[in-house]
Amino acid sequence: MKVIIPVDEASPNTGVCPSFGRAPYFALCEGGSVEFIENPGAAAEGGAGLKAAQAAADSGADALVTPRCGENAAQVLKAAEVKIYKSRPGTALENAAALEAGELEELTRFHAGFHGIA
């Protein structure tokens, strides 16, 4: 299973970024290995969550692990059949492993799509 996770840095021990739409990078984790892609939403003027969701959908990931996600992005990911799970404290790789082990819960609450941050 291929998992996409918003992260603060493009390094193996990076933590999960609190924002999906504005995270600087995404970690793509598969079978214990990880690669990083830039999040095109990070620098977007508006619609950051949508741009990030487009990138996540295009990445071919089966699941997204994130602390939070906006309604609009959730709608895109649903259409793209990418399941959304709630992250827990720890690194991106630990979260990917937790998901593989079936320990993460699906994210069911999405914040309103107004302007992106809490």
Partner: peptide, 14 residues
């Protein structure tokens, strides 16, 4: 404005 997304070959508008 990033109002458009293309998923599974179909555009979505926000």
């Amino acid at each position: 404005f990033n109002a458009l997304v293309l998923v599974k070959g179909a555009p979505m508008v926000f």
